[in-house]
Design a protein around this nucleic acid. Sequence first.
DNA 1: TCGTTAGCGTAACGATCATTATTAAATTCC
DNA 2: GGAATTTAATAATGATCGTTACGCTAACGA
Lengths: 205, 205
Amino acid sequence: MGRRREFDVEKALDAALCVFWRKGYEGASYTDLTEAAGVERPALYSAFGNKEALFRRALARYYERYLDFIPEALELPTARKAAEHILYRSAELNTQYPDHTGCLGINGVLAGSDEAEPVRQTLIEARAIGEAQLRERFERAIAEGDLPNNAKPDALAAFVMAVLHGMAVQAKAGFSRDMLEAVAEQALSTWPTRSSTHSWKSSPG
Amino acid sequence: MGRRREFDVEKALDAALCVFWRKGYEGASYTDLTEAAGVERPALYSAFGNKEALFRRALARYYERYLDFIPEALELPTARKAAEHILYRSAELNTQYPDHTGCLGINGVLAGSDEAEPVRQTLIEARAIGEAQLRERFERAIAEGDLPNNAKPDALAAFVMAVLHGMAVQAKAGFSRDMLEAVAEQALSTWPTRSSTHSWKSSPG
DNA sequence: TCGTTAGCGTAACGATCATTATTAAATTCC
DNA sequence: GGAATTTAATAATGATCGTTACGCTAACGA
């Protein structure tokens, strides 16, 4: 009995998911969410509860709709193939939607409101400067013969920076120094293989 | 001429730096900043300008006071030693202050206000679940002989997750899919060396 | 000692935040 | 068809946000 709902709850959730993905949890205002969903404020509240509950619903949907490659990967025959699948599919997911790049989980606490955009740009620039310094150092290393000629200094610098960012996120998640150093050691060492020959040249597809 | 300042501007900046480090840019309210600095609001405004300018000052101070190991590292004789120095010193920096873990630059857009702490915890748990799944998969790989017995599944899983987080941050900074795939490839490949023997067992100190 | 200048501190500004009372409209049951 | 009940939509809630008038106090030059 009673009046029936006029808007599609699933569509509204998808719209909210995209807003959270782009602006993060705190950066997404309820005004943003209602405008994206095309629904008035009390309608969203009655359908999902408060903002936190709505975000949790969006996060769950994100895992089942966009992070489905993780359970896929875990069933691949080798650990190497699993890691490969996750890394490459993540590279795709992080870049395929120009208006909400990155990962919802990270952006949830990494992105912010529009007013903070200048500060975000400053941090992005600072990050890029550090990476450029590292790349130049690696270019010098190639010239000095300290790195092989076929080494790619830009990819190497981007990789080290990625590990740095990853460690920073993990530290905020409570990782100990020992664990972070294990990550660093892994980044610096070769991937463990059964045979001691380690001549993979992986191809994404 | 006129009255001279009663509070130490440097101390106030240090206090603001710690608040930004812990709560991020948007998560740090002016009330938080003034309370940490032990200074009334207009005093902070007159000394630094607005919140954004204060954050930029804090960021500059962070680079010169805490990220001084980066220029240090760039002067080391080999690229490998440079990367090693940066990674291990970063592991230390990210964990040595229990009340403001991680990196100020990342936290600036990753941390948030206290009200969002439950959501942050949810994201941290979701991250940990993904890492645990990966670790279990790698444990199985060792049992199946697909990974060597001396492989450390927890470190390996943490490493892959670190690269994932790093890629997410880089995607938010505008990286293309190709660049992210280069990062993934680097993570999956061995570190390039002059000699084909790659038997580093690095020690942090 | 007096006028000028600048920092201090209270208190308020307008804007926006997430959340909800409240009233009007629509649908089902009796 | 009237009563019950759920949703829609307007508009307001109290709180907090970053920012700033404004009056008071302290220190300097004359």
